[in-house]
Design a protein around this nucleic acid. Structure first.
Length: 132
RNA sequence: GGUGUAAAUCAAUUUAUCGCUGUUCCGUUUUAAUGGAAGAGAGGAAAGUCUGGGCAGUAUAGAGCACCGUACUUCCUAACGGGAAGGUCGUUGAUGUGUGAAUGUCAACGAACAGAUAGUGCCGCAGAAAGGAAAACUACCAUGAUCUAGACGCUGUCUUGUCAUGGAAAAGGUGAAAAGGUGAGGUAAGAGCUCACCGUACCGGUGGUGACAUCGGUUGCAAGGUAAACCUUACGGACUGAAAGAUCAUGUAUACCAAGAAUUAAGGGCUGCUCGCUCUUUUCGCUUGCGAGACUUGGAGGGUAGAUCGAUAGAUGCUGACGGUGACGUCAGUACUAGAUAAAUGAUAAAUAGAUGUGGAAACACGGAAACAGGACCCGGCUUACGGUUUAUGCCUAUU
RNA sequence: UGGCCUAUGGUGUAACUGGCAACACGUCGGUUUUUGGUACCGAAGAGUCUAGGUUCGAGCCCUAGUGGGCCAA
């Protein structure tokens, strides 16, 4: 089980991010939305993430940073089943995570939500496999 | 005890597990990945972007105007619109002196605090009049007239009214503001008309680096407010902004450079037309001034996306001595690796300690890191947000 | 990151050089109509984003803050 989440998991390429939003594939579980796309990434990792908290809802940088840190912590603990599944099948996906709520939530609820989302995502990817 | 002001100071600590971003060291292999260890990792405002610099690039012979900024004095500083000390003025409180107008002392707080006889503008409504020493509503005084009414001592006199001419600028009302103030003399009534005192202006002496202070004198007091209205004076200011800029890699326009050649081109004017003469063009606010020019050949390389540098040891902090009223300066010692890039400091569990608060007579119990807030080239300030602790001090209240 | 603009009834805009905050639409009441609309008559509704300052007087001038918007890659 890999609990690491270092720089190589960070999605930076403008082109890939734009592509993710053009496809509009996503799973949602309040207060989090994940847009994803299966695409060849310039890394050996099978996953890359963007964490986003809108400035319109959270005016202060302190609040945005705090929520992003909590999300990153939750993802770090729950991503391993999905990552192993992708590694076995030699697939790569980019994920754009957006925080939708306008209030800060505690770590435990975020952890369960993120876990549920990754399970959903895994199901959808399993369904799609035959097409490829 | 309450409340205000000023200054100083803190912005939790420890352990375990799982992680994040740099640095150093030791390994592994496919040399760009990966494993391990050590040590480092947000603020007093990191914020607002209001300012001053460093740094970088571009521009610039010089001068004037325009534009922008600053504005009591002296000093500090790399510099400042910042700071220190001082001056003046104002407000409030306390307390004196004087018949009064005024004025002294103490304390706290505040001041965008140069110039209003350089000029221009504005001052609504109200009011006679709002800036020209002007005006005359009520009221005042004098002289004349007699159409009014009344009294008496009745050919007249007096009082009152009305009208006319003149005096005066005191009183009233208006207004934010009405042209020195108080007291006395003076006068037909009045008036700095005169006098004393007060205020103010000017001149001179003394003290101070200076703003100013103080003393004395004077044919002055006739000319308000507004410069956060235009403006005047003095001083200062080139522009851009790390997304600056440099290097690497990629490899192409005619902006750039050099040489050659040429004195040409476009538009306007003079003329019926051509030639010719003459003016303008450009330097990006304008003028003056100084320069340049179409074309050909050669050189040199633009944009997009990316990497590295720029980029973290400095006008640095702390301690001590000396100089200075102080801001601050000098010397000595000592300490200090944040450096990310859609952007690192987190999560979980426990312990220590723990303000306000709640209950209680007290002991104590409960409760629980909590306010404002997250670097983005770096420093000096200012402003704004905000929790606690300590010290000093003004005012109010209570007790002794 | 740097620069600039703006805020006025419920909505959209005025208010010139500082001097009683105006207009349209909408809202409400009435008249007309069998009823509704149209039309006509009338009324209410801001004290100018917030806090200070300058001034006799501030929507306007100055300072600080808050919200909204725009430009530069």
């Amino acid at each position: 089980m890999n609990f690491k989440l270092d720089k190589s998991y960070k999605l930076c390429s403008h082109k890939v991010i734009e592509a993710v939003f053009e496809k509009r594939q996503g799973v949602k579980q309040y207060p989090i939305a994940m847009n994803y796309l299966e695409i060849a990434l310039p890394t050996q990792k099978s996953l890359q993430f963007v964490f986003s908290v809108p400035k319109k809802r959270f005016k202060r940088a302190v609040d945005r940073n705090r929520i992003k840190r909590l999300l990153r912590e939750a993802v770090r603990h729950t991503k391993w089943p999905l990552e192993e599944f992708l590694m076995q099948n030699q697939r790569q996906i980019a994920i754009f995570i957006v925080y939708l709520a306008s209030e800060e939530m505690d770590y435990q609820t975020l952890l369960t939500k993120v876990d549920q989302l990754f399970q959903k995502l895994k199901h959808e990817l399993e369904k799609k496999e035959p097409k490829l």
